[in-house]
Design a binder for these strands. Structure first.
Lengths: 191, 191
DNA sequence: TGAAATTGAGTGATTGCTCACTTATAAAAT
DNA sequence: ATTTTATAAGTGAGCAATCACTCAATTTCA
């Protein structure tokens, strides 16, 4: 790794850690610089602004996750199998870099509106898979956005509570349960 | 309503609306005052600080919701019935004051750690109900915090996507689905 | 008339960002 | 090899702007 890339990586990691611990608005550029062992001015060699740094971190993870999910579910046949691969991919992604994952989870509200139209999006991947399954008659036809939200919530809320420290251990340990639960949500009988 | 109470209520509503639209840190005291049609100094007659105003708004809703949920589920017999009353109560609470609800939903991460120990807590209510049902053998024994998170996620993630504008209509319209789905999550068979 | 409520200019502290300058690294010239 | 030149990387004091909060003066109202 070149010197410059190393500095940039250190800045990103320092910012990430502070953003998760204290929030984006509450973190100062001076703190980021100190944590990365550089001068404040150095931040601006690599990022045009603090806001852009925060957005870059978010989008990088957001699109990377979306592509990984799309890739993971493609070979799987049938909704049940697709759910499991998606859940597994998501959990492994989370466990691999928990700080980055927590940052993404805690700051969706601020950044989601800034995701470019047509850019890879984890939610779209899931939505499309569910939509396909409805067309194929694998699950009851319902409001796709509603059931997608509920199915996603099964995993995301658990991840959120892990961020809060309400339970411990790797997310991946519960892939089977998440997949079963998400499936159960999608398969709820109409009455 | 007395004049003072009216001013306080106007300030709270103005702050709430701005906090949801732009975020707490991004909203200035000047803006709040303007939106409430009072001078900036007036804020400090009713609240010791902007932070305390934001926290008050959160805690008021948080504890009110917790008490309503606890009250609602008490008379219901059996987990299935309890789930439905809890879900219905939650959705009605959300539909009744959507701005307040959205504020609570979007700012959990910042304020949840500041909830006093032992204070009424919506999550605790749900957790206890599930814990009871496990003891009674109504559902499989599992990590309570994990399954509680997933069950709660079924409703909360849908609510979140409604905040994002991904779908429309009242949350209450989907009580039956949410209850069925949450039940399905809790009842997932062990293998 | 006196207490309560409201005002808004003023204050001190903070913050993101700039920029003139230094240091490190590499390339070119002698 | 050594010096010169060029470029990239890093620095940190300082600036302009913002913001939460104060308080002496004013208005409201019982």
């Amino acid at each position: 790794m070149g010197k410059a890339e190393d500095t940039k990586a250190r800045l990103e990691r320092a910012a990430l850690t502070l953003f998760v611990a204290r929030g984006v608005a509450e973190t100062t550029t001076k703190e980021i610089a100190m944590a990365a062992s550089v001068a404040e001015g150095t931040i601006y060699r690599y990022f045009p602004s603090k806001e852009q740094l925060a957005l870059d971190l978010f989008l990088h993870h957001h699109q990377g996750l979306a592509e990984a999910l799309a890739e993971a579910q493609r070979p799987a046949k049938g909704l049940r199998a697709k759910i499991e691969t998606i859940v597994r991919c998501y959990c492994e992604w989370a466990d691999r870099d928990w700080t980055l994952f927590a940052y993404h989870l805690l700051n969706q509200h601020s950044f989601l509106i800034q995701v470019p139209d047509g850019a890879p999006n984890p939610v779209t991947v899931v939505r499309d898979v569910i939509s396909q399954a409805m067309k194929a008659g694998e699950i009851p036809r319902r409001n796709v956005d509603l059931v997608a939200a509920s199915a996603i919530g099964v995993v995301m809320q658990a991840a959120t509570y892990k961020v809060y420290g309400r339970f411990t251990g790797a997310l991946s340990d519960h892939v089977r349960f998440f997949a079963d639960a998400a499936w159960a949500v999608l398969a709820v009988k109409e009455k």
